[in-house]
């Protein structure tokens, strides 16, 4: 379990890093926390010939609130920095809450926000949560920069809108509207494992207590974060009764996810879990939105 040979660069500036990526293209990989990349290299599942270590570049780790209630999180911000940040808790409570579900403390002190997004593991929390929260990402390259929404960023298994010469610099999570509520429900074999099934629900109520908006996004449910748009749409305008929630969960689990069989669970079991967890998540999110809990 030793990696294949590679060249290692540790540039001190973003420009140098981007130049190296531009030069080496598909041969190169950025190294952030190394919690996904290094194991894959040790298993020789990936064999990049060039590693560009981002850890010496200043200014990439930050948690910055915006005047409009949004929150920006720099790519190199460690999971445990978010986990222990009061600002994150205030501005992006769902993201803050989710941190304790990501691996265990040792991994969280190394693993980064941007690394998790760029890695685009469909079982990871952050891609699903950023999707549920309508997040967007700033991508930079020698050619300039662009903002890409989470919906467009995640393309499929470990595949994103990032070009080989691009880096993800930061994520922006917009503020939730008033009377909003959120929930993240997961079933994992052990608390620190990637979830067998997980679902994030973000809802908002109108003044009459009806559902004004809902986002339901599953993780471990397909080749990317699986957004249950039809089920969410069906809730809109309805009062969030147990019946409506049950129907939404059932239809989301039945029609809008595509879980696979693996050694930890069959697709059938995962669908069953998706239904149970989605129901529980919607119940909790609506309760929070209504100011209970």
């Amino acid at each position: 379990m030793k990696p294949a040979p590679f060249e290692y660069y540790a540039p001190a500036t973003m420009d140098e890093a981007l130049a190296l990526l531009a030069e080496h293209g598909y041969e190169a990989k950025a190294l952030a926390g190394g919690q996904s990349l290094i194991p894959m290299m040790n298993f020789r599942l990936v064999q990049p010939s060039v590693l560009v270590d981002l850890n010496n570049i200043g200014g990439l780790a930050h948690i910055t609130p915006g005047a409009d209630g949004s929150l920006r999180i720099g790519a190199l911000t460690r999971h445990n920095q978010v986990e222990t940040s009061a600002v994150a808790e205030q501005y992006a409570p769902l993201i803050h809450f989710a941190m304790q579900k990501i691996a265990y403390p040792a991994v969280r002190t190394r693993g980064t926000f941007g690394g998790s997004l760029a890695h685009a593991d469909p079982s990871a929390e952050l891609p699903a949560l950023c999707t549920a929260l309508n997040g967007r990402f700033r991508l930079v390259s020698g050619r300039g920069e662009r903002w890409v929404s989470a919906d467009e960023f995640f393309i499929s298994l470990f595949t994103t809108a990032l070009e080989p010469d691009e880096l993800l610099a930061e994520a922006e999570i917009p503020a939730m509207p008033p009377r909003s509520g959120w929930s993240l429900m997961e079933t994992a074999r052990r608390p620190h494992d990637f979830a067998l099934m997980g679902v994030a629900a973000v809802v908002a109520l109108d003044e009459q207590g009806r559902c004004a908006d809902a986002r339901i996004v599953f993780l471990s449910a397909g080749e990317k974060p699986m957004s249950a748009q039809k089920a969410a749409e069906a809730l809109r305008g309805q009062s969030p009764s147990a019946e409506a929630i049950r129907a939404a969960a059932e239809s989301a689990a039945a029609n809008e996810i595509d879980p696979a069989d693996d050694i930890h669970g069959t697709a059938k079991f995962r669908r069953h879990l998706a239904n149970v967890l989605c129901r529980r998540a919607l119940e909790q999110a609506f309760q929070r939105a209504a100011g209970k809990k």
């Binding site: 194991p39 265990y104 050694i263």
Partner: peptide, 28 residues
Amino acid sequence: YYEKLHYDENGQLLNASFADYLLVSSTE
């Protein structure tokens, strides 16, 4: 409840790492 070696029909071990072989940890 946790530790099972999963062999496929070709006799390949499908969980030959601690990512997939679920050792009981302090949390369990």
